[in-house]
Design a protein around this nucleic acid. Structure first.
Lengths: 243, 243
DNA sequence: CGAAGTCGATGATCTAGATTAACACTCGGA
DNA sequence: TCCGAGTGTTAATCTAGATCATCGACTTCG
């Protein structure tokens, strides 16, 4: 077993979601896995395909996406190191969406069978993982509101707020700023806009003093102002979710 | 315990999602609950509120929704009799969205504590319920694609296809047609459109021969044509999901 | 080094869908 | 019986964001 720091971060994240005893932690840390590397834009999982493994993202960014028949892409969620991605794969028979690497990704791929055995034997671990998928679901719902009922400035600002919070949790930034893990085209695919309009909207947010950009780094001079412009409330992230 | 037919339908639905033995079924059927009735448009759960109970929808339609700061509403999912709604309530500490009655609803309200005890004691039942929430998640993802990347005709057609499939499962219609459980304004809130545009779009679908309307009944003269116009694939409903 | 690909920026123009405003129909209640 | 609220329908107009096109900065790779 490789002793990667992200593994321990994952275990302590799960321990916040249900009470885990020493045996539970031990079982999690002794899950069999293979380390795999994916190149940028390669597919970790394809829609319609069987799902043999779930993956713990160790390094890099990945996202879930689906394609419309027109070829337009909708990004469904963005994942950061420490995220247990494609947990659905352990329980559902076919993948209903694609999982794609944003950057070069290093992952621990866990066989479906082993994960199922862990779930069956350790009710509290199953509970924690379930809560994890429920929080994912809550984020999908917020994105649905974002895409369905917010205008472009609110949408982009909301996405930037969410990234700030989640990257902070992953130890990759804070409320004052971070480096965007996405191109403008990918931001467009997150928000249902075009890349041209994302470009204009970022410019407008900057001109309004809500963000300062430098390359792909974003800094947030006044968190409250950006939060209010976005209509952002962190409730949906369920950050409180302890046992 | 009241012996409602929907209870049995719910148990057999869950039995498709994980292997349940007699004790599991027994435990499900002997969950304590109170029958409650909600008037149209009343709230079953409010965003930000604590969640004391989960509800099994016995009769009527309900939907989940969130409001933007502008007051615009986004409907997140629509629920039919037999759906276990607000299962999140048993595991998450606060509700991240509203749950609202579309019609007069009769529900079985199950105390959080009892559901937690069931989950802890019956791993297979927990598994089945988990799969249920994962399928909900898959539907949210499809809706995100729908709202983010399909045009209005595709959006409405897709929604009509999903209703056809799900109402059929609930024994309330079939591929040939059904009675819409929603007003045009609510269809608009499902799809991120305005009610005026939904009206025009329904008219356009009818003129294209994809649907025939009479009041709130929709009939589908040719399922394949509507399905193709919507870019609908039932994969995301995970209808196959047996043990 | 030069070629090719990716990404961001920006102007000109277009259009899907929003907005606003009527009006008609239904149905339950006073 | 009439009233009024909630719906559905339709027309006129407006606009947020899409589309199309160009250009420059960077990176990567023969």
């Amino acid at each position: 077993m490789i002793d990667h720091p992200v593994l321990h971060r994952m275990v302590s994240k799960l321990a916040q979601r249900a009470t885990l005893d020493e045996a539970d932690r031990e079982a999690l840390l002794s899950l069999p896995f293979r380390i795999k590397t994916f190149e940028p834009s390669s597919y970790l999982v394809r829609e319609g395909g069987p799902t043999e493994e779930s993956t713990l993202l160790l390094e890099g960014f990945a996202y879930r996406q689906k394609l419309a028949v027109s070829g337009d892409r909708q990004i469904l969620s963005v994942h950061v190191p420490g995220d247990f991605v494609d947990l659905e794969g352990a329980l559902l028979n076919v993948a209903d969406h694609n999982l794609q690497a944003r950057t070069r990704c290093e992952v621990a791929a866990i066989p479906r069978r082993a994960l199922r055995a862990l779930i069956d034997a350790h009710g509290r671990v199953a509970h924690a993982l379930w809560v994890d998928t429920l929080i994912d679901g809550s984020i999908f719902r917020e994105w649905l509101l974002n895409v369905g009922r917010r205008d472009s400035k609110e949408r982009i600002a909301h996405l930037l707020c969410e990234f700030a919070k989640r990257l902070e949790l992953a130890g990759l930034g804070d409320e004052n700023g971070y480096t965007l893990p996405m191109t403008q085209e990918q931001l467009a695919d997150c928000t249902g806009l075009t890349s041209v309009h994302v470009n204009r909207t970022l410019k407008a947010l900057e001109e309004a003093g809500l963000i300062v950009r430098s390359g792909r780094s974003v800094s947030i001079p006044n968190w409250e102002r950006l939060r209010d412009a976005a209509g952002f409330s962190e409730l949906y992230l369920h950050l409180d979710q302890a046992a």
